[in-house]
Amino acid sequence: MGQQVRGVVARAKGAPVTIETITVPDPGPGEAVVKVQACGVCHTDLHYREGGINDEFPFLLGHEAAGVVESVGEGVTEVAPGDFVILNWRAVCGQCRACLRGRPQYCFDTHNARQKMTLDDGTELSPALGIGAFAEKTLVAAGQCTKVDPEASPAAAGLLGCGVMAGLGAALNTGGAGRGDSVAVIGCGGVGNAAVVGARLAGAARIIAVDIDDKKLATARSLGATHTVNSRTTDPVEAVRELTGGFGADLVIDAVGRPETYEQAFYARDLAGTVVLVGVPTPEMRLDLPLLDVFGRGGSLKSSWYGDCLPSRDFPMLIDLYRQGRLDLDAFVSETIPLEDVEKAFERMHHGDVLRSVVVF
């Protein structure tokens, strides 16, 4: 039968979002309805609105969310009504070649709810990253719900659903940052600053934050960066080398995702060092590097998908660190806003004024 709630919809490319009445179906087999408590405003939502992901309009935006399971469908055993959960876009299948090889964090067949949420006229909605959480309630696959400590703040916990997890995981999982390492992070928005925090959690001895905005660099320092470099006025490659004894960093994380920043990351690493790309490029971008330099410098060139996280493993552990005061997720919540202010939050995000605006219901 379903129920009707309010949600934020992008109807057309580049058009301002609108508040619409959304019909949320009752959960079918393997599905869950979640009452959303908080949802972060992520760059990915803006990419959806701008048509940068695909053209399957209209979109129900929002995906960085936490809330309480309201009801579940047949066969659901991993969560139950009343559970406090973080929503994720990596509901692993358990059957693909990655899962069967014991690497579910790379699952190639993640799944979403089979039923569609709709506008009140019956138009089917495409939920952002299969979640659609700028809504009072949303329908997801039960595997997209990760149960965590209910004492955690929903506004902070929900950020693990995308950007903060991407940055933390780029350092901890993909990059394998370790005790005593030198780590450079290029781009200090929400994802980049989360990578700074991840490097600190790993025990890195030297954490170098690189950006063109002194405000973002100040935030990076407050979150654990030991050094900062403004690449608008200073060559970041030379600066990173100077700060690492002339060698370059053990790990360099590109949280921007442009050819220029990737090249900086490539040359700012030590011999046999690691580059991790976690910033998302656009389709037209191309990279030109001398193949001899790729060979001669050795090491690893990696891409980080969702911080190579496994939500069932990583979310509860990170929430425990948050509850212990060892991971300051609250620092990423720049402001809390009502559902009606999502469009304004996109504008603030575009100008770099916030790490995260968070819709709180």
Rank of each mutant, 00 (worst) to 15 (best):
H63L: 06
C99L: 15
D83F: 13
G307H: 01
A157P: 01
P27M: 13
A184F: 09
K302H: 01
S334N: 07
A249L: 11
A199C: 02
A199K: 12
V69M: 10
L339G: 05
R49D: 04
A12R: 15
L119E: 08
L329H: 02
S182P: 01
D330Q: 10
V164L: 08
V191P: 00
L100M: 15
N193D: 09
N193L: 08
D109N: 15
V69A: 10
D293S: 14
L301N: 11
C99R: 07
N54K: 09
A133Q: 05
T282H: 11
V197D: 00
V197R: 10
S182F: 08
V256E: 01
G75E: 14
A218R: 14
V183Q: 13
D330P: 01
R11V: 08
Y106M: 15
L46E: 09
R323E: 04
L327H: 04
R97T: 14
Q37R: 14
P316A: 06
R11N: 07
I53N: 00
G7W: 08
C162Y: 03
C96W: 15
G73E: 04
D149N: 12
A12S: 14
D55N: 12
G203S: 10
A331I: 02
V34C: 04
T219K: 13
G224I: 14
P29N: 05
V333D: 00
C145R: 05
E50V: 04
G94A: 15
Y48Q: 11
D121W: 11
M1H: 06
V197P: 01
F361C: 06
V294A: 09
Q105G: 10
R97H: 15
G40W: 12
L125I: 10
S153F: 02
R97A: 12
Y106F: 14
A152C: 12
A91I: 11
Y262C: 05
L327I: 02
L87D: 09
A142F: 08
V183P: 02
